[in-house]
Simulated scan of single mutants.
Amino acid sequence: MRAHSLREAISLSLAAALLATSLFAAAQSSNADRPIRIVVPLAAGSTVDAVARAVAPAFGRATGHPVVVENVVGAGGIQGTAQIVKAPKDGLTLGMVSSNHVINPGIYKTIPYDSMKDITPIAVLATVPVVLVVNNALPVKSVKELLAYAKGNPGKLNYGSAGNGSVLHLAGELMVSETGIDMKHVPYRGTGPLITDLMGGQVQLAFVSISQVAPQIKAGTLRALAVSTPARSAALPEVPTMMESGVPRYSFDAWIALIGPAGLPKPVADSYAAAVQEALVSPEARNVITGQGLTVLNTGPDLAPAFLQSELVKHQKLVKQSGATLD
Rank of each mutant, 00 (worst) to 15 (best):
M1Y: 11
H4S: 14
S5R: 15
E8S: 13
I10K: 12
S11A: 15
L12D: 13
S13N: 02
A15G: 15
L18P: 05
A25S: 07
S29P: 04
S30K: 10
R34S: 15
V39E: 00
P41I: 00
A43Y: 05
S46A: 08
A50M: 14
A58G: 05
G60T: 06
R61I: 04
R61T: 07
P66L: 05
A75V: 02
T81I: 11
Q83A: 06
I84K: 06
K86Y: 01
P88M: 02
K89G: 04
L92Y: 04
L94I: 00
L94N: 00
N100A: 12
I103H: 10
Y108L: 01
P112F: 02
D114G: 12
I119L: 10
L125C: 09
P129Q: 11
V130L: 07
V130D: 07
L132T: 03
L132I: 03
V134L: 09
N135P: 03
N136F: 02
V140D: 02
L146T: 08
L147N: 05
A150Q: 11
K151A: 15
P154R: 15
K156E: 14
A162I: 00
G163P: 11
V167H: 04
L168H: 09
L168K: 07
L174D: 03
V176F: 06
S177Y: 12
D182I: 09
M183A: 12
V186Y: 06
R189F: 13
T191N: 10
G192Y: 07
L194N: 01
I195W: 02
T196C: 02
V203D: 03
Q204N: 05
F207K: 09
F207Q: 13
V208N: 01
S209E: 13
I210W: 10
Q216M: 08
A224Q: 02
A226E: 01
A226I: 01
V227I: 14
S228Y: 00
R232I: 03
S233G: 00
A234N: 14
A235P: 05
S245W: 09
V247K: 14
P248H: 12
S251N: 14
D253T: 14
W255Y: 12
L258P: 04
A262H: 08
P265M: 03
V268M: 14
V268A: 11
A269P: 04
A274R: 14
A274V: 05
A275R: 10
A279H: 05
V281E: 10
V281K: 14
V281R: 15
V288Y: 00
V288K: 00
L294E: 01
T295D: 10
V296S: 04
G300K: 06
L303D: 15
Q309E: 14
L318Y: 09
